[in-house]
Design a binder for these strands. Sequence first.
DNA 1: ATGAAAGCGCTAACAA
DNA 2: TTGTTAGCGCTTTCAT
Lengths: 336, 336
Amino acid sequence: MASDSPATRPTIRDIAREAGVSVATVSRVTHDDPRVVADTKRRVQDAIDRLGYRPSALGRALSYQRTNTLGIVLPGLGGPYFAQLIEGAESVAVERGVVINVVGTHLRPDAVGAVRQLAERTDGLIIAGGTLPSDEVAALARSGRVIVVAGEADEAATVVTDGRAAAAELTGHLADVHGYRRMRFVGEPSGSPDTAWRYQGFRDALDQRGLAEAGEPVRLGLDVRSGAVAARMLHDAADLPDALVCANDELAIGMLATLPGLGHRIPADVAVTGFDDQALAGIASPRLTTVHQPIAELGARAAAGALGDDIRSHTVLETRLVIRESCGCSPEGTPD
Amino acid sequence: MASDSPATRPTIRDIAREAGVSVATVSRVTHDDPRVVADTKRRVQDAIDRLGYRPSALGRALSYQRTNTLGIVLPGLGGPYFAQLIEGAESVAVERGVVINVVGTHLRPDAVGAVRQLAERTDGLIIAGGTLPSDEVAALARSGRVIVVAGEADEAATVVTDGRAAAAELTGHLADVHGYRRMRFVGEPSGSPDTAWRYQGFRDALDQRGLAEAGEPVRLGLDVRSGAVAARMLHDAADLPDALVCANDELAIGMLATLPGLGHRIPADVAVTGFDDQALAGIASPRLTTVHQPIAELGARAAAGALGDDIRSHTVLETRLVIRESCGCSPEGTPD
DNA sequence: ATGAAAGCGCTAACAA
DNA sequence: TTGTTAGCGCTTTCAT
């Protein structure tokens, strides 16, 4: 428990000795090599069971020159977005007998060092946009398989969605269908490339229509808590616009969990939109108008690339505007 | 220009050759060994820089017989609870020059296999309660350093909080101060030991007062989405109790983001409580009455243990009841 | 101050 | 069918 020194693990040599064979034979048995005769195999297997031997992944990795591991670098292990991304990556990792190792850089003072360590122990790396300086990404890409997801890179292949166009379409709906004029973006644009693109799309739609932002972007993170904080700030400043365009669903959920309690009805007093179309978006009340993104697919494609499949150097996946009620539309899809 | 081996990473031998020294000397340089004379050191460092050499973590691990890696096994990488746990572990990992590798078992068909792989590549393991069959945990504990967090184990040390007592205290407050009689638990008790303890505490408080549950536990997950789903179910069944005792804050937040939109005021029509006291709990509206848990501390203690510190075989950390407004108390802390 | 060489746990030619 | 042996990349005595 506290102080018992774990017995040292048996090595392939221990088994060889125990079974009275060579290490090569033991290795063959652990690989189900058909060449070993049944009787020998049994003897070896017995020794393995008796001593509780399991081949060292480290030793194997060194010999194979591959680790059967896929690394994923994310800003943090927070919300559903990254969970889904990982899930997508897992789906392809599983069918290739590869395990996944995740590191979150936001928690890490020395993110670069941690990622370099990770790179050593993996056959490929998925890096989320905005987690590392781009020259570091380039360096990593030069010495290994790297795919950047939701970000830009010139030395590595990227897998993204066109968040800019999607955000513009969403904002256009708010302006044209509902006639909102005072709209404000929630989320720190420079937080990640992803968010930057969405903000740009928001601006695009405004500019196209000669509209101005109802204020600076609310510069906060991308989690539920930040949505709640933003809601309180806006309430305290008595400065609610017609519509709050949130950088993702979680922010919007934070709004839903705060604004009503503060006396603001959604969407009657203020419209709120999300981005991502997480499962939650269709369940909260009012249901969230948002943009659907194939997040798991993003992870799956990236994983395939990072594991050696040939993929295009720049893959862009489709998004889809999802109109529900938080923008002011009625459940039938028509504006109020 | 040494462009002979282009694709493959340079090894310590390449550097040795390039600098005209032995591998031992290169190794000394990478370890800042004071015995190498300045001139030699410079020559080696030059070669290292020129070829872009970085010692292989794999090779080192094999030689050192340690990996400088800490593994964490969680059900999933979803919400803030696990993010905080990891953060706590990171804080001690960082000061020991250790990196963290996380795997989520819920995403994994072959969780056991994945964890075994992980165990190979780490010096210690933190395992969240309920993620693995207990005999597997025992096996892992026998061959390495394992700490179980928020769960039970006889072969491994555990780090927990007394969720049962805390839940009983919280429920007692609801019953005694507010006089609620119809109370219902939200969350699947058998989902994790943690949740089971909280449900037990809830039952304890009820039993003590001769009260009955206002219905079976609402058997859902522990995420925001499940809270929203539960809210809709209860609404659709027109079966809202006096108070909803949620297994964690996220569930409660899902309620806050759904119930008001469905026409139910919190706490006027129905009280809602959380568990964990996430940052969000004090910001959403109404602010959440909940139980504070030192989650990061949980992670930190577990990490210390998993990395070799002597810790008690059973550590229990303090919780604290946090009364805010979602239970019906006024901001001043008095009941309505 | 530096080098030679023996491991660390495993795999895979090559021999026998 | 099985064994011998040379790596995989690195560290670390032990010599020199």
